[in-house]
Design a protein around this nucleic acid. Sequence first.
DNA 1: TACGCTACTGCAGAAACGTGCAACAACGGG
DNA 2: CCCGTTGTTGCACGTTTCTGCAGTAGCGTA
Lengths: 258, 258
Amino acid sequence: MLPASRKELLLQRLRHDGRIVAKEIADELGLSEDSIRRDLRELDEAGLAVRVYGGALPASPAVADYAARTAVAPESKRRVAATAAALIKPGATVILDGGTTTLAMVDAIPRTFQGTIITHSPTVAAALLNHEAEVLLIGGQLFKHSAVACGAAAVEAANRISADLFFLGVTGVHATTGLTTGDADEAAMKRTLASRAAETFVLASEEKIGAASRYGVLPFAEVAGIVTDVATSDPTARELVAAGARLVHAQRKRAAKA
Amino acid sequence: MLPASRKELLLQRLRHDGRIVAKEIADELGLSEDSIRRDLRELDEAGLAVRVYGGALPASPAVADYAARTAVAPESKRRVAATAAALIKPGATVILDGGTTTLAMVDAIPRTFQGTIITHSPTVAAALLNHEAEVLLIGGQLFKHSAVACGAAAVEAANRISADLFFLGVTGVHATTGLTTGDADEAAMKRTLASRAAETFVLASEEKIGAASRYGVLPFAEVAGIVTDVATSDPTARELVAAGARLVHAQRKRAAKA
DNA sequence: TACGCTACTGCAGAAACGTGCAACAACGGG
DNA sequence: CCCGTTGTTGCACGTTTCTGCAGTAGCGTA
């Protein structure tokens, strides 16, 4: 049992049973109570659980959701998300792709933004519940791996909408293979969404740059820009520019976070 | 029983019975009256209850409401959710409404369930990501208050699907006003979903029973059953049955949990 | 007032907790 | 291949929390 997946299991137990007794779990997993307690302490600090004498109880759902959201947003994603969010003009209609980087964008978009946000990701939609913007959800068959609606129904629904901007998430941005993702159906959905927006921007946090996946999405020529936080001087970045990509550089200086 | 969750239980009893007798609870939990008294003292200091000779009474309604909200009383919802989930047959196609009780159903449905689950709630869809079942997301304009897709597009999308069961969430179940909810558009959406399923079951945790909201959803005659955890002998329950409602009673005994 | 029940205080044992430490494995650099 | 670093785990110790008991004080009713 990996320490990381153990915490996952603890959270699952918390959701399922509504409580955790340190001693019980320790016996069950064959670990000392100390280890369990340490895990619970970290979950508590992350706001995902509340420690009590003898074990732990679930955090309030709203808090847990928020904590889970922010916990998964490393610096790079947040920088890229903030830069991308700054591209949105007041009143605009924006399509948000699925993925952790677009999820980080939700936090970067002001809650008071008055435009329309369209998405085919239930997680992005759920995160937008506290925003004032109008939200349109594109339905379809849920593709579990990346948590977005795909398939014929989703494409059909997407073809009825139009937007100013599309923020595209990909798993790879490479000078020769271009923009790529891990699933063919998902790639088709991304192409459809791109065709419905006047401009498409790619969200590429550092781990995506120079990487490549199995299925191509779009050529560099069809996207207005690639938002990334790698340095202009980075050799991989130069290769991308040479290949025709337009890079939008995120401020690498320290961003937000009190 | 964790000390922390014991206080939770005391608050619940306070809300449900309107009073607590120290000796009774002590016998029931197998603890000394001293421990119960200590708990009651702390609840009193926190302003969540008022100590009286022999036990405790609820604090003023406003405070009690606040406590109830922050404490989140999941027991009732969980019982109802578990009973409802047991109605699902392997391989079935199920529509899940939005709301906290249907969200609780996601945890109650086995992860290995192999059927199809349809929902217009992004939060329910997001919760289903770890399940093996196929998930269809119904898109549309997102109605923020209850976090579900509504409107013409959602109705249209819903009209293309068919299911075996629909689990309907409402805010009120009342003998004379029937099944009600707080928004007209949402009520229409619920009716549409009900029309697409062979059978509709209502999820009614205890706080819904006897309550009424502004907009009617369906007459009792059009739902196959109302899953609830109020006792058969409850007078409000008798009124509902007299009004033509078919009640499905959740086990009120304390279930599972070694 | 007298009696029974309830409440509070202090105390002691048990259980749970936090901290520091050492053993151990995994990893990366030289 | 070796070695330093990092992260994880279990143990020992002192501390805190929980719990029940005994004694005493307070409340309620006859």
